[in-house]
């Protein structure tokens, strides 16, 4: 039985350690904010210029000058700081963040990822994704294992234009969790969703992985 979005996000949240500074992407990664393990202190960064993201506002707290990188209304916390976009990305590009969690269209077995464009179809832009994956030491990708048409998204090589080369350290899909300890080898299967067999995973993945 595949994991749902909440379960995927919760699994990623378990990877975070006390004291870490973390950037969360749009989509499933945003859910991680509400699923952080008890008793650990995580500071969330939003690349539009906020370090220390609070919860969503109550209706009377809504402030149009206070949004996250997904353009959603948000709140601040004691200890929050606001910075310019240049400073915000200096934190990211300078390697000061501990982890980034983001979604993807494809991940390749060598850690390449592609998540920003489908040529001729979807033209949105990369936003901060290229900076985040090339500047952060731990990159965790959350995505469905297969596309809507059933084709694998965990691939031998990415077919779409890349966001970053050899940047992914961990992949959590609705079917399984894969990790690699360095950016040299293949991903290793560390966990499967309930009732998902190794055979099924291999059938649904174009990428090679170890187990």
């Amino acid at each position: 039985m595949p994991w749902n979005r909440q379960q995927i996000a919760a699994r990623a949240a378990q990877e975070l350690q006390d004291g870490w500074y973390v950037n969360l992407g749009i989509g499933i990664p945003t859910l991680v904010a509400n699923l952080l393990p008890e008793g650990i202190d995580i500071t969330l960064q939003s690349e539009n210029g906020m370090l220390g993201l609070g919860p969503y506002p109550t209706p009377d707290q809504v402030d149009p000058d206070l949004i996250n990188a997904g353009k959603e209304t948000i709140t601040e916390l004691p200890g929050t700081s606001y910075v310019s976009s240049a400073e915000s990305f200096a934190m990211v590009r300078g390697g000061h963040m501990d982890a980034t969690i983001l979604g993807s269209l494809e991940v390749a077995e060598n850690g390449d990822m592609a998540n920003w464009i489908i040529p001729g179809k979807m033209v949105k832009g990369m936003g901060g994704a290229m900076d985040l994956v090339s500047g952060t030491p731990r990159v965790i990708v959350l995505m469905d294992h297969c596309a809507r048409d059933g084709s694998p998204k965990f691939r031998k090589h990415c077919t779409l234009p890349l966001t970053g080369l050899n940047v992914v350290d961990m992949l959590v899909t609705d079917l399984a969790v894969f990790k690699r300890n360095n950016r040299q080898g293949l991903f290793h299967l560390v966990e499967k969703a309930p009732d998902v067999s190794l055979d099924y995973l291999q059938q649904k993945s174009e990428a090679q992985f170890t187990w």
Partner: peptide, 23 residues
């Protein structure tokens, strides 16, 4: 890329003609 954009604008304002980035 957003960080490159911010830095290119910063560089333009700071008299730095170009820079290198991994992004």
């Amino acid at each position: 890329p957003q960080g490159t954009l911010a830095e290119r604008i910063r560089a333009g304002g700071a008299g730095i003609p170009a820079f290198y980035t991994r992004t």
